[in-house]
Every structure is written in structure tokens, then in C-alpha cells.
């Protein structure tokens, strides 16, 4: 009787969430790499998430951090970088000529392939995807003083994606980036990541702080999305609650949970009434 009584309050998904491969499927291949993209295409995954930012000559390159460093990356001759190489200070051609990434074993993904590859440009990604079904989720990286500014980045991204035939959308890490993207093209599908995670910050501490903000009502991802004009919000699954999902739904804002890797969590969140989820292990998701 109690279980029946309690069952009334649980929101059930109308359709299962979509599944995106985080950093193109980083549990199997180096993150954001051509190998990872080729695997996603071969597996027939519906969507990949990738991180993009601008080079010095205004080209859009795929990389999570605004810098290159060892051991993940090395010079083309295999030697380690003695200090961080900031992407926005170098042209794409120079980066492709002298940087190889993915050639080191990663602790968090010990079974992933180890392949040293050049950075991908967004143009190369588009060419590889071709006219297939793969959807692209672009996470635009903007960091004051370390990347191109939001307006320049938004313009370059929009120009680059103008002729892409598949469904694509872009995430901004802050309300300012979202606003810049919206100014560039109000018809672009734009998402906001919440909470904002400053570069090199302790993400665990920030997520826990965000949990307190949610609990106390001092932080609200739906309100943040409304303010910035975002079409969707990406929220760490650790703090995403069904109340936020319900509030977003009634505001017409899509919701994505990231990054979900455990099998129990994937099984559970595949039943949530959210738009999509991101995982390093999309192959584990029952809703794939």
C-alpha cells in the first residue's frame, strides 16, 4: 500500500533519454580524438560530445583544455612538454604539426586504446561525419585571458557550423558565453552548463556547493537558463533532482545529466524524464 501510495509522485519518462558519448567516447579511445570519432561512427552511436575552442588564427580545434600538456600530449618527436602550451597562442597548422595527444595510458580508463594522434579540427570532424546520422554536441571553451573571447568564439563556431547538415547544438560554460552565442545567432540551439566550473577549480567541491545552493534555494539552474536564454541545461547528475527537471520542463527548457558512468546509475537515469545524458561509457546505457 505504501509503495503504491508513493508511486504517485515519481515522474516517469515519456521517452528514454538520448545518450551522448562524452568526449567522443573517451572510455575506449583517447578523448576528442579521430579514433574515438571513428569508433562512434562505427558503433552507430546517436551523438558525441566534444570540446572546442579557437586557435590563434581563428580555427576551431577539438580539445578539452585551453592548453596542451604532458603526459597526455607530447611533441611530434615524442618529447614531453616542459610547460603548458596555450592553444590560443598558436595557429592550427603549427599545433597539428607539433602536437600528438592520446599516447599515454590514463588511470581513469586503463583499458582504453593508447594512440598518439594530432589534434582534430572541427572541419575534419565535419568531414568525417559527412552526411551520416551522428549528432554533434559542441562544448565551447571560453576562459578569460586564456582563449578567444566569447563573442569571437561564438562567431567562429557559427561560421564553421553553418553548412553542417546534421543536428548540432552548443554548450556554454557560463551565462555570458550563452548570451554571446545567442547574440550571434538566436536560432542556434544553446545549452548552459550549471553550475559554472572555473578552469582548474575543484569540481567536487563546486558540485557539493551547488548542491547546497539548490537545497537552500540560493542557486537555480532553471533560473540561470531563463536569464541567459538557453534552450537547455546540463547539470551534473550528482546534484540533478527531479524538482529541477520538472521546473525546467514547465519552462520549456531541456535537461541533460552528466557524466554518468556507473551501471546502476545509468540504469536509473535512463528512466528519468530528461532529454539526454552523457557518459564515458555510452555502450553501457540501456537507453542507447
Amino acid at each position: 500500500m505504501l509503495l503504491i501510495f508513493l508511486g504517485c509522485g515519481f515522474l516517469k519518462a515519456k521517452d528514454p533519454p538520448g545518450v551522448e558519448a562524452h568526449r567522443m567516447g573517451t572510455s575506449l579511445f583517447p578523448e576528442n580524438s579521430a579514433s574515438a570519432l571513428n569508433n562512434a561512427l562505427e558503433q552507430g552511436w546517436p551523438a558525441v560530445e566534444m570540446d572546442v575552442l579557437l586557435t590563434a588564427d581563428g580555427q576551431v580545434v577539438v580539445n578539452h583544455d585551453p592548453y596542451i600538456e604532458s603526459p597526455r600530449c607530447t611533441h611530434a618527436d615524442g618529447s614531453a612538454f616542459s610547460e603548458r602550451l596555450w592553444i590560443f597562442e598558436h595557429d592550427l597548422a603549427d599545433l597539428k604539426a607539433d602536437v600528438l595527444c592520446g599516447g599515454a595510458v590514463r588511470e581513469e580508463f586503463p583499458d582504453a586504446a593508447v594512440i598518439a594522434e594530432p589534434l582534430q579540427s572541427l572541419q575534419e570532424v565535419k568531414a568525417a561525419v559527412g552526411s551520416g546520422d551522428l549528432q554533434l554536441h559542441l562544448d565551447l571553451k571560453v576562459q578569460e585571458g586564456r582563449t578567444a573571447d566569447a563573442a569571437t568564439s561564438a562567431a567562429a563556431l557559427r561560421a564553421e557550423m553553418a553548412d553542417f547538415p546534421n543536428h548540432w547544438w552548443v554548450t556554454g560554460g557560463t551565462e555570458d558565453v550563452v548570451a554571446a552565442l545567442d547574440t550571434e545567432d538566436p536560432d542556434m540551439e544553446i545549452w548552459l552548463d550549471w553550475p559554472p566550473l572555473p578552469a582548474d577549480s575543484d569540481s567536487t567541491a563546486r558540485v557539493l556547493a551547488a548542491l547546497m545552493e539548490l537545497e537552500l534555494g540560493t542557486g537555480d539552474p532553471v533560473a540561470a537558463a531563463r536569464r541567459s536564454g538557453a534552450d537547455g541545461i546540463g547539470v551534473p547528475y550528482q546534484i540533478l533532482d527531479l524538482n529541477t527537471v520538472e521546473g525546467a520542463e514547465s519552462a520549456g527548457i531541456l535537461v541533460q545529466a552528466w557524466v554518468i558512468n556507473g551501471q546502476v546509475a545509468l540504469d536509473r537515469y535512463c528512466e528519468w524524464p530528461i532529454h539526454s545524458l552523457i557518459s564515458d561509457y555510452p555502450q553501457r546505457a540501456p537507453c542507447l
Binding site: 501510495f5 509522485g9 540560493t218 533560473a223
Partner: peptide, 17 residues
């Protein structure tokens, strides 16, 4: 509702046992 000090709206309501 989903109202909070950061979101002064009472337009989304849930009914919970």
C-alpha cells in the same frame, strides 16, 4: 512549486505523497 529566491515564479507545481 519550484519557486526560490533566485526564481520568484510559482508556475510549476508538483503533487507529492
Amino acid at each position: 512549486s519550484d519557486a526560490s529566491w533566485g526564481n520568484l515564479r510559482w508556475d510549476s507545481w508538483r503533487f507529492l505523497p
